[in-house]
Amino acid sequence: MAEDADSTLRLPSGATAAQPSPSRSSSPTAVATGSTAHTEASVGASTDGHVLGRGRTVIADRVLERLAVRIALDVPGVVRHASGPPLSGLGDDLPAASAEAAGERLRLRLRVAVRWEEPAHEVAAAVRSTVRDRLGAITGKRVDRVDVAVGALLPSSRITEDRGRRVR
């Protein structure tokens, strides 16, 4: 997989400010123009041994989103960040993801918080490729596009390490 996938990186104008998503910039609609015709074999493939009462397999979009968030957190430089008063439901919880799936294809928007002094564009690029590859592998869907926005840059003093929560 090349590093090309047309994706965008946006930084908030005011460094740390959690920006209220002026997303939908460019024109993300023209889905993967030159994308290889990668027809994922459809149902009934007799190739795999067990044809135990087939049936459909469906993934809820929120599963895609939660997986994307989880995968993004594995990228070095990405940190959790909750803005707004605790438990108020206000503000943002980063990383945040929204997925748009159509059949086998998937588009994602991700907003992440990055540790200050990490090169944000490199972190964003790493998020993009990591999420694309791992989410594709986990869900079997083809991730056409991942838009990554850096929603916050945080100095170490504002990063609450969630110790012990990441079981590896």
Partner: peptide, 13 residues
Amino acid sequence: HGPEGSATEVSHV
């Protein structure tokens, strides 16, 4: 969480 949102089918490989 409550009522399920949208979902998409996965093809079998």
